[in-house]
Simulated assay, not measured.
Amino acid sequence: MRSHSYDDVLSGPRKRKIPEVPAEQGLVVEDPASGYCGAVVKIEYGNVVLEDRHGKHRVFPLNPAGFLFEGKPVTLVPPKVAQKTPARRISASGSVQVQGLKARVARDSRIWVEGKHDAELVERVWGHDLRVEGVVVEPLDGVDVLSDRIDEFGTGPGRRLGVLVDHLVAGSKESRIVEAIRDENVLVTGHPYIDIWEAVKPSVVGIRAWPKIPRGTEWKEGVCEALGWGEPWEGWQRILAAVGSYRDLKTPLIGAVERLIDFVSDPGEES
Rank of each mutant, 00 (worst) to 15 (best):
P86I: 05
R53G: 01
F67P: 00
V40Q: 08
G100E: 10
I90L: 14
D52T: 01
V77Y: 04
V41L: 14
P86K: 04
G55W: 03
E44F: 05
L76N: 07
G66W: 12
V98C: 15
H54T: 15
K42C: 12
A82M: 12
V41Q: 12
N63P: 00
L76R: 03
V40Y: 03
V40P: 04
A92W: 06
P86S: 05
F69H: 14
L101N: 06
V74R: 02
R53F: 00
N47K: 10
D31Y: 02
Q99G: 05
P61V: 07
S95L: 00
V48N: 02
G35E: 12
F67W: 00
H57T: 05
S95R: 09
V77H: 01
A87N: 11
V81T: 15
S93I: 08
P64H: 08
N47A: 06
K72A: 12
Y36L: 05
P73Q: 10
T85N: 14
V74G: 05
A33Y: 06
I43F: 00
E70C: 04
P32V: 00
V49E: 08
S95G: 05
L50D: 03
V81E: 14
G35A: 04
G100L: 08
K56V: 03
Y45D: 11
F67M: 00
P79A: 13
A65K: 12
G35R: 09
E51N: 05
K42T: 12
L101Y: 01
A39T: 07
A39V: 02
A33P: 00
V96F: 12
D31Q: 03
